[in-house]
Simulated assay, not measured.
Amino acid sequence: MEQAQEVDRKNTVVSGGSRFEGSIHISEEVIVELTKKTIQGIPNIQTATTGIASKFGIGRKSSEGVRVTVEDGEVPSISVEAYVLVKYGQRIPDLAWDVQEKIKANLERYTGYTVNSVNINVQGIYVDEPVVLAESEDAEDAQENEIESADADEEKKAGE
Rank of each mutant, 00 (worst) to 15 (best):
I52C: 06
P43W: 06
R60M: 07
I39L: 08
V13T: 14
Q90K: 12
T49V: 09
P43M: 08
T47S: 04
E28V: 01
E74Q: 12
R60W: 05
K61E: 03
G16S: 04
R9Q: 09
G73Q: 06
S62I: 00
V80Q: 03
P76R: 06
G16T: 01
T35F: 01
V32A: 01
T47W: 03
A82F: 10
Q40S: 14
V7D: 10
V86G: 07
R91T: 13
P93E: 03
S79V: 08
R67S: 14
D8Q: 08
G65H: 05
S18C: 10
A53G: 10
S62W: 01
V68R: 03
T49W: 08
T50P: 01
E2G: 09
V75Y: 05
G17R: 07
E21G: 08
V80G: 01
I39R: 02
K36T: 09
E2Y: 06
K37Q: 14
V70T: 04
Q90L: 05
L34C: 03
P76H: 08
D72S: 13
Q40D: 15
H25M: 12
G22P: 07
G17F: 05
I45H: 03
A4R: 13
Y83F: 15
T49Y: 08
I58R: 07
T38K: 00
K10I: 06
P43D: 15
S54V: 05
E64D: 13
G22M: 13
E29G: 11
I58T: 07
K87S: 08
V86M: 13
T12G: 05
S62T: 01
I52D: 12
V84S: 03
Q90C: 08
I92C: 06
V32N: 00
V7Y: 11
R91Y: 14
G73N: 07
R67H: 08
S54C: 04
G89I: 06
I42Q: 01
I31Y: 02
E6M: 12
I92P: 03
G89L: 05
S79T: 14
V32E: 01
I39C: 04
V14F: 15
E71D: 11
V14N: 15
E21P: 04
I52A: 15
V80D: 00
R19E: 15
H25L: 13
